[in-house]
Amino acid sequence: MDIQVTQTGGVTLVVPQGDLDMGTADHVKRMLTELIAKGQSKLVMDLTGVSYVDSSGLGALVAAMKQARAVGGNLKLCGLQDDVRSIFEMTRLIKVMAVHSDRQEAVSSW
């Protein structure tokens, strides 16, 4: 999975490309953990390029969100494709995670 990371103001924008499954979840989780450890805990992840998320992927995002919140930040999401959004709705994560319609809205929400 390719992941682009960009600093914009005080917000770190993370843009993964590919499927978020058991094979990539650890990589994503590790990368987010490293960013938070470096003090970049105001995170926005744009999932526009992710067409598949399973429970392993959800677990990585929830873990990172908890880590970020513990230090005063958060992991905000945007750009969820319909099939991805339905998994977030099914597991009710849509209610507890900060989910925005697009990147601009998510970044400016900080």
């Binding site: 392993s56 959800l58 677990g59 929830v62 908890k66 597991t91 009710r92 994560l93 507890v96």
Partner: peptide, 15 residues
């Protein structure tokens, strides 16, 4: 799984 909690695992079979 208790979906009122933010689960990091244990939701696969539920899905």
């Amino acid at each position: 799984p208790d979906l009122s909690e933010m689960n990091e695992s244990g939701v696969g079979l539920y899905i």
